[in-house]
Structures are given as structure tokens and as C-alpha cells.
Nucleic acid binder design. Structure first.
Lengths: 152, 152
DNA sequence: ACGTTGATGCAACTGACTGGCAAGAGCCAA
DNA sequence: TTGGCTCTTGCCAGTCAGTTGCATCAACGT
């Protein structure tokens, strides 16, 4: 339950890379730092843009290759939202996303929140879902309130 | 509750197009026919390939434009699966999808199946989801049985 | 320091999709 | 039937996210 600083987390992930025979490089460190800092919800393009502030010559292809490497090692996961967009986040921070269509806010929803649905699908359909992070779209509490105020 | 033949359904949709000031064209009819025949789960590319058997000169851009027109009129909807792929289906046949990762089978799940989840999100998070069709991945009943048989 | 081999930058490429434009085809009106 | 207005279409070039080939570069073990 020890709380790690972001730097520690980055180091830890670099160690996992090294332990798998991968090399410690600046590019990888920079990409990982962005993912850790953003704490979820980063698109590949976000990462590239952000990383290129510090390393202008770093190519998107490197970002994609790094993401693929991290995915292979189970360190990050890729999520597709219901609108076709995609983001990456740390695997140990797995969660669903509630995306507000009005203000764009993305709220996290613990994986456990869909336990009931899982059980239902298994009981009723014999279908065993994976704990695949979902991106659900709708209106967040704030926007719902203001919408109610605006209309009618 | 009248059961319509596929031809009737296509005609009916063509009528709705005409009623909206759109023209009745072969291309549109062909695209609609494929969507109606497939009864859901068609990708734009599926449609293009299929339609081009009858109309080889029909361009993909026409398929996309037709799909967009149909979407504007609320006749078809686009769904993004959790693996990033996308399909189109008739709006009056709205449903979620249970996609088996092993055999590729796609099972339909009524929208109502997620009512409990919706209520939960509203009560617990104040988040109002839209009835957005989802594509959930996992193992279907058949594959679950055979997997149990195979391993251990 | 050195050599092996994995990692990177660059650029060309893919696949899904979009937009411009001129030619073609519905539909209405005469 | 014949215009003719305007929507549709085919063609093609362009965009956008992501991938791949390849020569160069730089980690890491020795």
C-alpha cells in the first residue's frame, strides 16, 4: 500500500523493462513519465506531443513502439471508447471511464462497478466477459444539473 | 408486430429517404439491402465488398456517404467495439453485442439488459448514460465449455 | 573501449475515412 | 417527352492514426 512518487513509479517500470531484457532509454523513460503523470486517459498523440516538448526529435513511431512494448509486458493497457477514440493507461490502475459528452470530463469508474453486469451475463447468457475497461458516454452530474436548468 | 420481408424493409427505408427529400438511387438501395440482409454487425468495408459484387463501379465513398445519410436520418447507427472495430446496424434493431474472442461469434444483447447498470451509475455517480450500443468481449457459452474441457 | 544487438529517426506506407469537383441521374414542371 | 435544377456519384487526392523497412545509433555485457 506504499504510496510511490511519480519518479519512483517511472523507475519501477524501467526496472521491469530492464528485467525483461529491454534497454533503459531516454525515449522510454519520457513516454512512461507522461503516462504516469497523466494518471490514465492519454492518447498516443497526447503522449507524442507532450514528450516532444522535452525531446523534439522523438518520433511518434517510437511512442507507438514503446506503447506496444509496455502493452506486451502488461504494464499499460489500451482502451477504446465507444466513440472510436483510444487511450492508454497503467494496467494497475484499471478502471472504466464515464465520459461526459458535454464538458468532456472523464470520470473513473472502478472495475468492480460492473460486477453485477458480469454476473448477469454469465447467468443469463453463459457469456464470460473479460474485465475490459469501457468508455461510456453520457452526461456527468454537473452538466446534467445545468442542462435541467437551461431547458424547459 | 407485422413481419416484413427484407425487400419490404428496404422499400420502407427508401420511402423514408424520399420523404426527407433524398433521391431513390440504386446505390442507396444496394447499401440498404446489405445492412438489412446482414441484420446487424456489418462494417463499412463489408458493405462495400458485398455491394460491389452487384455494382462493381460503386465506390466506397458512396457507401460512406450513404451510411452518413442514413445515420443523419436516424435509420442506422454506428457502434464501436471495445477492440476498436466498428459496425453499422439498423437503429430499430438496437442492441449490445457480446463478441466471443475465441470463435468470433457475435451474440445480441437487448439494450434493456443494461438497465440496472444505468440506474446504478445514475444513483451512485449522478452520471446519465446514453443507450449507447456496446461491444463486449469475452468467451461465449460454447467456447467456455470447450475451454473448460481442454485445459486442466 | 569494443562489439553485438536492440532502439531510434526518418520516411514511405497502409487502412479507414473524408472532401473537391465535374459528370451523371432523379425528380418536378411544362 | 423534354428540359432543367439540383442532388448523387465516381474518381481521385488528401487526411488521420498507426505501422513498417532500413540505416544509423546507442545500451549493455565483456
Amino acid at each position: 500500500m506504499a504510496k510511490h512518487s511519480h519518479e519512483d513509479q517511472v523507475e519501477q517500470i524501467m526496472d521491469r523493462l530492464a528485467a525483461s531484457g529491454k534497454r533503459r532509454t531516454m525515449s522510454r523513460q519520457a513516454v512512461i513519465k507522461v503516462i504516469v503523470d497523466y494518471h490514465g486517459h492519454v492518447s498516443a498523440d497526447d503522449i507524442a506531443t507532450r514528450v516532444q516538448k522535452d525531446f523534439p526529435s522523438l518520433d511518434v513511431s517510437t511512442v507507438y513502439r514503446t506503447l506496444e512494448t509496455l502493452r506486451e509486458l502488461g504494464i499499460v493497457e489500451r482502451v477504446w471508447f465507444a466513440d472510436g477514440s483510444t487511450v492508454y493507461h497503467l494496467s494497475d490502475h484499471k478502471h472504466h471511464h464515464l465520459c461526459c459528452e458535454r464538458c468532456g470530463a472523464v470520470q473513473e469508474l472502478p472495475i468492480s462497478a460492473l460486477k453485477n453486469l458480469e454476473r448477469f451475463l454469465l447467468d443469463e447468457y453463459g457469456f464470460e466477459t473479460h474485465q475490459q475497461p469501457l468508455g461510456l458516454f453520457g452526461l456527468c452530474a454537473d452538466c446534467r444539473r445545468s442542462t435541467r436548468g437551461d431547458s424547459s
